[in-house]
Design a protein around this nucleic acid. Structure first.
Lengths: 196, 196
DNA sequence: CGAATGACAGATATTGAAATCTGTTATTCG
DNA sequence: CGAATAACAGATTTCAATATCTGTCATTCG
């Protein structure tokens, strides 16, 4: 098949949808726009995604998965000192969020809207991240560097306690000059709390 | 002066404004509504508050001050065990917020909108709360129950780390059955981190 | 035959005219 | 004279008519 008559796949639709969302924003991006961008009728889009909400959810999941993958590298650094590994993981999460929010605020706002629309998908993503954290905590406990009766619960507490540095509702604060100090202060306290 | 011709004071205007906000919500509450509720012309309201924004800011500050006062009682319990005092203070803050959000969600939403409009006033309120926390931390350090090189910074870190349990943007999560467990897990970790 | 289309009904969004509100000021009232 | 008002201009909001969009489906196309 030639590139000009490429078959319409879910993948291509998702890419076009991301582009339309980037261009028009979440409020004005329509299924008709997506179809137009692909040069097909909007009925064809509905063959691949049952509803507009399902399409947006799929886009949201793709985006969240990309974030998870970027972090899983740090989570997997088996040999590293547990404290450095944990701190590095949170710093990686914070840096990624802060970079995105600062570099392209409109796109970040777009994905924040999508996240609000898809609480369930976000919940799964958070479960994913917490699972990565749990592995780090477990490794720390095994190495004798951390104490925790319930690594999964501890991972949840760590994630909750650091919300200010990854939850989009705090994005505005990430511009402040002393956020990194705030981050360090919170992590110092949490890491002290983990030590045996 | 008889009750029917009471003089128009800033106080009476603020009370009427709260009532109008409660009735109509933040989007539809107008200065004209407030004047109507008081049986005066809206020009008279402008004699006491230069703009609608100033009026709303004053209402916001009153409300935030009431929250601060409610907590200052716990902060002042000088004799108590530092850990219990700190935990009690956060539990008091969390309970108050959760009760308000659960009991009258619309009013809570109204004040959340006002809080977003008046970031500066909220900042001062947070400084206020952090100052209360700082006193608790200092007392704990003095009693040898806490370690902290910089109690004000530690208080800030504690406040940031517990955002999930007092920041209105998490109000939805406070309905979940296991929030109290999450709260306990986070505070356990933080209190461990404070111990010498 | 399976993928794509275009026409359709009901729901949602846009638009522009009319109504209301904000903030000011000259005037009234006690 | 000081407090309240009513009339006003410009900004904002409301509302109803119009246009667009969502989701379906009978038909077309390859």
């Amino acid at each position: 098949m030639s590139p000009t008559t490429e078959t319409l796949t879910a993948e291509r639709i998702l890419e076009a949808t991301e582009e339309v969302l980037r261009r028009h924003g979440p409020a004005k991006a329509t299924v008709v726009d997506v179809a137009r961008a692909l040069g097909v009728s909007h009925g064809s889009v509905y063959r691949h995604f049952r509803t507009k909400a399902a399409l947006r959810e799929a886009v949201t999941k793709r985006w969240l998965d990309r974030t998870s993958e970027a972090l899983s590298g740090i989570a997997a650094e088996e040999g590293r000192d547990p404290e450095a590994r944990l701190r590095g993981w949170f710093q990686g999460l914070f840096d990624a969020k802060r970079r995105k929010a600062g570099h392209d605020p409109e796109l970040f706002a777009t994905y924040s809207v999508l996240a609000d629309e898809n609480v369930e998908a976000v919940g799964e993503h958070i479960d994913d991240l917490t699972a990565q954290l749990t592995r780090i905590v477990e490794a720390g406990v095994a190495a004798g560097a951390f104490t925790s009766a319930d690594p999964a619960a501890t991972a949840g507490a760590l994630f909750h306690a650091t919300g200010r540095f990854h939850d989009p509702c705090y994005a505005r604060e990430w511009e402040r000059p002393d956020v990194q100090d705030e981050f360090d202060a919170v992590l110092d306290l949490l890491l002290r709390g983990l030590r045996p």
